[in-house]
Design a protein around this nucleic acid. Sequence first.
DNA 1: CGGTTTTGACCGGCGC
DNA 2: GCGCCGGTCAAAACCG
Length: 282
Amino acid sequence: MERKEGVLKMEEVLGNSFSDYFPLQSIFDWSCEGGENTPLGFMELLGVQDLNPPLFDTGQQQAPSAVVNQALNPCSTKNEGFNYQPATPNSSSISSASSEAVNDEPIQVDDDQDQQKAKKQLKPKKTNQKRQKEPRFAFMTKSEVDHLEDGYRWRKYGQKAVKNSCFPRSYYRCTTTSCNVKKRVERSFTDPSMVITTYEGQHTHPSPIMPRSSLGGGAGSAPYHYQQHPQPFVNTLSPLNFGHNNGSINAGNFTTRGDFAAPDRLCLKTMACFKTLYHPIC
DNA sequence: CGGTTTTGACCGGCGC
DNA sequence: GCGCCGGTCAAAACCG
């Protein structure tokens, strides 16, 4: 499974549906293959601190980001396809999202919905809202297990068959109340050994799961990275800042915890890729 | 018994 | 307008 230049393209792995979500293919490739001696935590594999290639050090430059964007995004010519606006926080997703939120008001149930209720007692739930598009962050992991341990507790709330794939997609929600982070887990149908995990939203809490203290005293004593650096992990990682670097809303607040012990089976090769909020299907 | 998973149905967005 | 599809809900089953 040697790939050209050791880089897996997302489309290769997941197929079209994935490229829909993740127009930026193959952002980077960590050669953790044979990395048996790499005590990399799961989140670390996501590009935390140590592994952060300078490329993703968004604090410094936008230019390389643009380069990466253009290089990796085949849709970049399609202007509407990638509305990358690095320097316009006002036009970022948060404003869009919040404005959507403004629009949706608590829906009063009227007679139409009584019928629906009669059918099945469905609340006028928030699906009436325009679904807020949370920033997403996705990565691929070579793993035998679908649901990768990431330090948070998740509750599965759905599973769907994926078109053009023989593998279902599972939907998880963070079990912490008031934290509405979601994640989707699916297995690449072109490469079943690859698990695609997509995080959506931002954790409002540190990880509830104390890692196994495999790193000596680190586990118990080391503060969560979340607490030290409440910035979203993605902002650190993403070369594009997802176009919403205004700090109000962020892609999943993926904490980096140096003491996090990676599952053994986890990740020989992990890739991260990103979806901008504005990115329609290309 | 409480939390989680399963699973069929529903809903909304989007393309045709 | 219609159908497809992704995402979500919620009741039931399951599990520790």
